[in-house]
Design a protein around this nucleic acid. Structure first.
Length: 154
DNA sequence: GCCAACGTTGGC
DNA sequence: GCCAACGTTGGC
């Protein structure tokens, strides 16, 4: 069964992996997600072709900086099995992996950042988890109307 | 660097 | 199953 493309927002710290890194590499496994809700969105919600806002967090000017696209179905995050990785999880096993990822590919970089501050100022976006204080979810769905609204803000 | 908010862990 | 302690996220 097919369905319309859906929309997502994924956070990354630019010091670790920025939109320019994604542009340079073209496509990248979104590893290191260690939150069940975020994992469930990747594993159960995302489909190849879904659109993604790329968001820079924990930086001088947090906000949406680009657009990416879901490029693969979910598969086990290899870093959970690597004892040398920061993302190693001793409680996970290859038989029963706990953490999943999708790969995302670069679509475009926005001409300028749509800042968190600007997003918070939009009444139309007040229901987004992103703009709520204390929100820490790193992968979240974006409604079609919210997606369109944000695109007009570029 | 600070700290509020929140998710996870583990003792009971 | 409760909840205090702890660790992490992420804006500022």
């Amino acid at each position: 069964m097919t369905r319309s493309p859906q929309y997502w927002l994924m956070k990354s710290e630019p010091d670790a992996f920025s939109i320019d890194d994604l542009k340079r590499k073209g496509q990248e496994p979104w590893d290191g997600v260690r939150n069940y809700q975020a994992r469930n969105f990747m594993r159960d919600g995302m489909r190849v072709g879904d659109k993604v806002f790329f968001y820079h967090s924990n930086c001088a000017e947090p906000g949406i900086v680009g657009i990416a696209e879901v490029a693969t179905d979910a598969y086990p995050d290899p870093s959970q099995f690597d004892p040398k990785s920061n993302y190693f999880d001793a409680a996970s096993s290859r038989d029963n992996p706990r953490w999943m990822l999708v790969e995302v590919k670069f679509v475009k970089k926005l001409k300028h950042t749509i800042t968190l501050k600007a997003l918070q100022a939009e009444p139309a976006l007040a229901d987004m988890p992103l703009v709520r204080k204390g929100n820490r979810l790193s992968v979240m769905p974006v409604g079609a109307a919210e997606w369109r609204h944000i695109l007009t803000m570029e």
